[in-house]
Design a protein around this nucleic acid. Sequence first.
DNA 1: CCCCGATAAGTTGTGCACAACTTAATTGTG
DNA 2: CACAATTAAGTTGTGCACAACTTATCGGGG
Lengths: 148, 148
Amino acid sequence: MTDDLVLRRQVCFALYAASRALTDVYRPILDEIGLTYPQYLVLLVLWERPDDAPTVSELGAELRLDSGTLSPLLKRLEGAGLVVRRRSARDERRVEVGLTEQGRALRERVCDVPLRIAQATGLGFDELVALRDTLTRVTDTIHRQKEQ
Amino acid sequence: MTDDLVLRRQVCFALYAASRALTDVYRPILDEIGLTYPQYLVLLVLWERPDDAPTVSELGAELRLDSGTLSPLLKRLEGAGLVVRRRSARDERRVEVGLTEQGRALRERVCDVPLRIAQATGLGFDELVALRDTLTRVTDTIHRQKEQ
DNA sequence: CCCCGATAAGTTGTGCACAACTTAATTGTG
DNA sequence: CACAATTAAGTTGTGCACAACTTATCGGGG
């Protein structure tokens, strides 16, 4: 029982270490185009629906990040000329985040990134899908518990 | 091809989200004893070998964290009275990190934590072990590539 | 013995994450 | 309509992560 506190036995550490390791793979790739990994994630959401201009809250719901994280991040993306933020006309509380032409164009420069990342993991396609699905299940389980 | 850039399909996002979700489960538990998750990880290493007093570098090798992260973290742990830092007598460059009596005693208060975390994931024991091993394999693969 | 490269820890600066709080706009209820 | 409760975004403060740099010590070759 006392052995349960050994670092290498803990799933949480494996998760924490793997997450940082994968981010390390992203870093040099994203550095070239001047993005951080969380900024890249925001753009992924925007690229999925290029004409949608989701609000900060909607972005946060997708990425599970709050305005405390997103507000300064979006300000930096706007400073880089990749997105625009505008107050909603119908609801002045909301801020809609849209892609600029430059932000839209950036998509072409990263379309081979997922493949390069997948290769770095050393896992086969089926293993990757299984891993992703297990992780998604864990995340959903935790969030469902939190809401109750 | 173009679909590869969809957020929910990316293993990396699943990893990033799961890691933060699990940390969310830790937070209220560790809050009670005044620790952050990375601080808890440092203590895990120290508890594994209570009479060892590893150096900052050795801690960093276990956790894959550099002195830029560990130095201030250890200073806070020392401020909380859980560890002591002392220059090695044989090599004045090294700083050895040892547990205080209070730090040693804290172990008793967290020995049920791994079980509580495991339950929060909703996975069975075998699934957890398989997940951990897959993640460890990914991490090792990435680090091995980095060294070459 | 001296110096030069290597090593160890710490410092500085940037960018997340997240809690707690503030400000402003909106909605529901009487 | 009035106004209290809610919601949205932003701000502030703390603590990681990590790159780049500094300071101090160590070790080996000339």
